[in-house]
């Protein structure tokens, strides 16, 4: 493992070091500061990691090699965080804010379960394996256990563990939409077939979590789709896994679907229930679900959904917003339209 120290203390930059509209991942640390990750404005396609606090935002690490900006930040359960660019970069920022970069093989996806790091590894060909280790050790060379096979073109999406400790993994398939797999008794079971993406064959799962014991996910056209079709607002869905292991549509537009997926449970009448919202990120605030959506004309909105599926808008912005998950709450991050306007706001 290569170790590098944090950047010089006291050197601060505005949050606008992140490009406007750039995808940002965020994670709150026990210190009260927030880690932010996104594309570097200095090196094209490089990933920048920064620490945001009351005094401003400070860059602490930039990737040496350009990497795709699809980065994710995850609390390590010990006051620090892990940064993952699937298959390319894994960093551990420990509670002392030391940045430790992993050498060698990098997971496709990671999840924390019971204080241990669960990593999905590329096992060659179309196979994967799951390795559990402590965050600081990251012994990915261990044999692990078998993961689901990846069909050609499939990409591993969010991974999480449910209330019973079972591993759930979304595979995004450019030909057939997304598929949800669950590991049970050492076997992998396909829970959602092709219809769950409601026939949008390029619909990808962008975020997932457990809400009230139930797996919930946001899905829709990803950044690649939106780049190929500029300006077109294509709706996405907010879905959950029902008690019968069948998917349930919580919010989304009306379109030909398997019968149970035609009418959203959060019906028309709330902003989240209308066709034009694209759920992007999820977080929890006590018993409520927070859903960050993209709205037409580039706006974003944050919705609060109660366990009774009543939804209300709690924040809107003409600028890109991102959510940072906390224990029992979330931080709402507002991107920048101009370099001097970066800011980090608390939402919950």
């Amino acid at each position: 493992m290569a170790r590098s120290s944090r950047a010089r203390p006291g050197l601060t930059y505005p949050a606008a070091m992140f490009r406007p509209a750039a995808p940002l991942a965020a994670c709150a640390l026990d210190s009260g500061e927030v880690l932010l990750a996104g594309p570097s404005p200095m090196v094209e396609d490089a990933v920048l990691l920064a620490l945001a606090g009351p005094d401003g935002t400070e860059p602490i690490w930039t990737s040496a090699d350009p990497a795709a900006a699809q980065c994710d930040l995850l609390p390590d359960g010990q006051g620090g965080a892990l940064l993952l660019v699937p298959g390319e970069i894994l960093l551990h920022v420990d509670a002392g804010q030391e940045v430790i970069e992993a050498d060698g093989e990098v997971p496709l996806r990671i999840a924390m379960t019971g204080g241990r790091l669960l990593a999905l590894m590329d096992a060659g060909g179309s196979t994967t394996r799951l390795v559990e280790t402590r965050p600081a050790l990251r012994d990915f060379g261990a044999p692990g256990r078998k993961g689901p096979d990846l069909l050609p073109g499939q990409v591993a999406g969010p991974m999480l563990t449910d209330a019973e400790g079972r591993v759930l993994l979304f595979l995004n398939d450019p030909q057939r939409g997304f598929h949800l797999w669950r590991e049970q008794d050492g076997e992998w079971h396909l829970l959602t077939g092709d219809g769950a993406s409601r026939y949008g064959t390029n619909a990808a799962v962008t975020d997932a979590l457990i809400w009230g014991g139930v797996p919930v996910w946001a899905c829709g056209p990803d950044d690649g789709v939106r780049a190929a079709i500029p300006g077109l607002h294509i709706a996405g869905d907010l879905m959950a896994l029902g008690p019968d292991d069948l998917p349930v549509l919580l919010a989304g537009e009306l379109r030909t679907s398997p019968a149970r997926l035609l009418v959203p449970r959060i019906g028309p009448g709330s902003l989240l229930g209308q066709a034009r919202s694209i759920p992007l990120q999820l977080a929890l605030d006590g018993p409520d679900l927070l859903v960050l959506t993209a709205e037409p004309a580039g706006a974003t909105a944050l919705h609060r959904v109660t366990p009774a599926l009543q939804a209300e808008v709690v924040a809107t912005s003409d600028r890109p917003l991102r959510l940072a998950r906390l224990d029992g709450g979330a931080l709402l991050l507002e991107g920048t339209a101009a370099p001097e306007e970066g800011e980090v706001d608390s939402a919950a």
């Binding site: 077109l232 607002h233 537009e253 009306l254 379109r255 030909t256 028309p268 037409p296």
Partner: peptide, 23 residues
């Protein structure tokens, strides 16, 4: 399709249903 989708993205909630003819 783009004309239709652009138009429909401005409609009120529940005012629009999309059907695949093949279905």
């Amino acid at each position: 399709q783009r004309n239709i989708l652009d138009f429909c993205s401005t409609l009120a909630p529940g005012q629009y249903l999309r059907i695949r003819g093949e279905d």
